[in-house]
Amino acid sequence: MHLALQIQPGQTLLIRSGTSSIGLLAAQLASQAGLTVLAITRSAAKTSLLTTNGATHTLLDDGYLRDQVGALFPQGLDRALKLVGTTTLRDTLACLKPGGLGCMTGILSES
């Protein structure tokens, strides 16, 4: 994550599929590195798990995060770590600010 996303303290990071084991670890590492972490889940019951593991903000994934992210960070985000399938790739990239970096690390689901 550090190398692929070139993370720096003070940046913002979106983690799509935040409740996966990789997502939870990424949130912990990013939080420890001084990033503001936005972790995504499809289940409201799992938001406390995300905050316990380092998420600054938790969002419920409805397939369209751009508006939710824009309400918190109108300029967009610095980085995005994508752990789910390609169906939400455009939406994830739309959350980035110009010049932001995204990394699609795996495909946990595909529909």
Rank of each mutant, 00 (worst) to 15 (best):
L65V: 04
A39I: 11
R90N: 13
S31M: 07
S43P: 03
T47R: 09
T19Y: 00
S111I: 08
S109E: 10
T105K: 13
L96Y: 01
I7L: 12
T56E: 11
T41D: 11
G76H: 03
F73R: 01
L13W: 00
L96R: 07
L108N: 15
L38K: 05
G85R: 07
L5I: 04
R42P: 14
T51G: 10
D67I: 09
Q28S: 07
L24Q: 05
L24V: 15
Q11R: 05
S109G: 15
S109L: 05
K82I: 02
A45L: 15
R16P: 02
L5S: 00
G34N: 13
L89D: 04
R42V: 11
R16N: 05
L89C: 05
I7C: 02
T88G: 05
K82L: 09
G100W: 02
S111A: 10
A33H: 12
M104A: 14
T58I: 07
T12D: 03
G34A: 12
L3Y: 04
L89Y: 03
T52V: 04
P9K: 04
G99E: 13
T56A: 10
H57Q: 08
G54V: 13
S20M: 08
L65W: 00
G76R: 01
Q28I: 07
A71V: 14
F73M: 15
L13D: 02
I107N: 13
Q8L: 06
K46Y: 00
T12V: 02
Q6L: 07
M1E: 05
L49F: 00
V84E: 03
G63I: 10
G99T: 11
K82C: 06
G76E: 04
S17A: 12
R90Y: 05
L93T: 11
A80R: 02
G70L: 03
R16C: 03
Q11D: 14
P98I: 05
I22L: 06
S21V: 11
Q6G: 09
L77P: 00
G54D: 05
Q32K: 06
I7V: 14
G34W: 06
L3C: 08
G99Y: 01
Q32P: 15
G23K: 01
G18E: 00
G102L: 04
F73N: 04
I107A: 10
Q68R: 09
L38I: 14
L29V: 09
P98T: 15
N53R: 11
A33T: 12
L35M: 09
T41L: 01
S31Y: 06
S109F: 02
G85C: 15
A39K: 03
G70E: 10
D67E: 10
S48E: 15
G23V: 04
R42E: 07
